[in-house]
């Protein structure tokens, strides 16, 4: 699969940038519980503009030039978003069951690799 090639790093970088904007729109407001919900919604709304610009470009580029199916790209994107949340949780040193985390993340990584291989 082309995605596992090292020359494909710009696509991965673009995927992570999209995921970053998407996660920022979806989850970044959660710690700000006392901020007005309309203000928070407007900030999320604004975050969707760069996300759409990057993601739609990437989607059409991969779909047209490499004939990658939209299903694979969407699954990759969903996995990338989830992996960003995992990084965020690990960086925040929140107490989670290490055993479950390792088993779960191994399964997740295997599923992700299985999709690409």
């Amino acid at each position: 699969m082309i995605f596992l090639s090292p020359d494909f790093w710009p696509v991965w970088a673009a995927l992570y940038i999209c995921a970053l904007f998407f996660c920022a729109a979806m989850y970044a407001h959660l710690p700000f519980k006392h901020t007005d919900i309309k203000k928070v919604g407007l900030i999320s709304l604004i975050m969707m503009v760069p996300f759409t610009l990057f993601y739609f470009q990437l989607l059409s580029y991969l779909n047209i030039n490499f004939e990658t199916s939209i299903t694979v790209i969407t699954l990759l994107f969903a996995g990338t978003c989830f992996s960003l949340i995992v990084f965020m949780k690990l960086l925040s040193f929140e107490i989670l069951s290490k055993f479950r985390l390792i088993i779960g993340l191994s399964l997740f990584a295997y599923g992700y690799y299985f999709l690409l291989a």
């Binding site: 699954l75 779960g104 993340l105 997740f108 599923g111 999709l115």
Partner: peptide, 17 residues
């Protein structure tokens, strides 16, 4: 794809259980 989706979902659920 069904297999990989199922494994990924299961992994995600177990990780944050």
């Amino acid at each position: 794809i069904i297999q990989s989706m199922a494994i990924m979902c299961l992994g995600a659920m177990v990780a944050f259980y």
